[in-house]
Write a protein that binds this DNA or RNA. Structure first.
Length: 363
DNA sequence: GCGAAAAGTATGAT
DNA sequence: TCAAGCATACTTTTCGC
């Protein structure tokens, strides 16, 4: 029996939550921004459809958005608040999966559920579940979402984007899958961004259908074995990847834009100190230790670098992050004559602190 | 010269 | 020209034998 997977994607999530919290925003262009702390510099995180119709979109510089519409409502992100809303929505979606193991949260506003066992090949059943989820989210959270249903995650994900907002798109048979993908530009394929799309265009591959028919050997020689094969399969709507609960992120990082560009280690360390507080807090919440510390440096010319170090033992102290970051940063600045614009830190190699024994407990 | 681990870069989605 | 912050996948280099 073939699989049935549903993908639920909240509509313009951050901006929708803000609209819900402040109904006077309805009908106005709402733009949720991440600010850099330097004047009004920053990027658009999400915006509602009124704003999108003016040409504003995610990732766009806020200053550009303001040029397009100075009168739009510009709000700073409130990530912690959206996360609380998201958590409740995710419980609703999860409750309709075959089992808790058949739920996969992809990001703050989207998730997959496997409903193969529940629906046993019956797509009408899948549609009923989708409508039920949409209704529960609307009633309990006053928010809309778009749902895609397909024979795998790839198709479900792309189907959910087909009709937005408040959409429901069902793609069932292999013929429907083929027709659904065929004429779309390659950039619409899930996992193909600007860089890959451009490379494909250069190979004279413009649509997903063309990609599906393209010589696999050439794709592999251009993109490497794994990614080449993945492109070919995806273009044909083939995706065997299972719906699996995601462990929490296996790295925790924070990055900021400096108040002003600098090459001074001590000054930059002042920012890193604050970043380390955040990282440590998240780490403690989850009772985790880390084995690697890395720093990211973005120069005044927007070139990105990273340096990292593996520790001898798992560790969970802020002091370790600071001394390691200091060492990496001062070495980097010695070797590279650059001016720093943004700086970030990250810990990885995470493991449970509770299960490990600290040296002192031996004595 | 090999496989594994570490280090560093590229990419994507919001 | 403008340009946030985050995670992950992928590639290259180094390590231990």
């Amino acid at each position: 029996m073939f699989r049935i997977v549903a993908h639920v994607d909240m509509d313009y999530f951050y901006a929708a939550v803000e609209e819900r919290e402040n109904p006077s925003l309805h009908g106005k262009p709402v733009v949720v921004c991440m600010y850099s702390g330097r004047g009004d510099g920053g990027s658009v995180s999400t915006c509602n459809y009124v704003a999108r119709n003016i040409g504003i979109h995610s990732g766009m510089p806020c200053s550009r958005a303001r040029q397009l519409n100075p009168d739009a409502i510009y709000l700073p992100v409130r990530k912690d608040f959206y996360t609380k809303v998201s958590d409740r929505i995710m419980r609703i979606i999860e409750s309709h999966a075959d089992s808790p193991d058949s739920f996969e949260q992809v990001s703050i506003d989207e998730a997959f559920i496997e409903i193969s066992k529940t629906c046993k090949g019956d797509f009408d059943c899948a549609v009923r579940i989708a409508k039920q989820i949409k209704q529960e989210i609307l009633e309990q959270e006053k928010l809309t979402c778009s749902v895609g249903i397909g024979p795998n995650k790839l198709v479900a994900k792309m189907a959910s984007s087909e009709q937005k907002p408040d959409g429901l798109t069902v793609i069932t048979t292999p013929d429907e899958v083929a027709a659904f993908l065929r004429d779309k530009p390659v950039g619409k394929l899930w996992g193909v961004g600007k860089v890959t799309a451009l490379k494909l265009e250069e190979m004279n591959i413009h649509t997903i259908g063309e990609l599906a028919r393209h010589d696999a050997v050439e794709l592999v020689s251009t993109f490497g074995k794994k990614r080449g094969a993945w492109l070919k399969a995806s273009a044909q709507g083939i995706d065997e990847s299972p719906v699996i609960p995601r462990g929490r992120a296996d790295q925790i990082g924070r990055i900021v834009t400096l108040p002003h560009n600098s090459s001074d280690v001590e000054e930059i360390m002042g920012e890193i100190d604050m970043l380390a507080d955040d990282v440590i807090e998240k780490l403690h919440e989850r009772k985790l230790s880390f084995k690697q510390v890395s720093i990211t440096i973005i120069t005044s010319h927007f070139k990105a670098y990273s340096r990292n170090r593996t520790l001898n033992l798992p560790c969970s102290e802020k002091e370790t992050i600071l001394t390691t970051a200091y060492s990496l940063l001062s070495q980097f600045l010695e070797d590279n004559n650059v001016i720093v614009r943004r700086v970030g830190i990250m810990v990885s190699g995470l493991q449970e602190t509770s299960s490990q024994t600290t040296l002192s407990s031996y004595f």
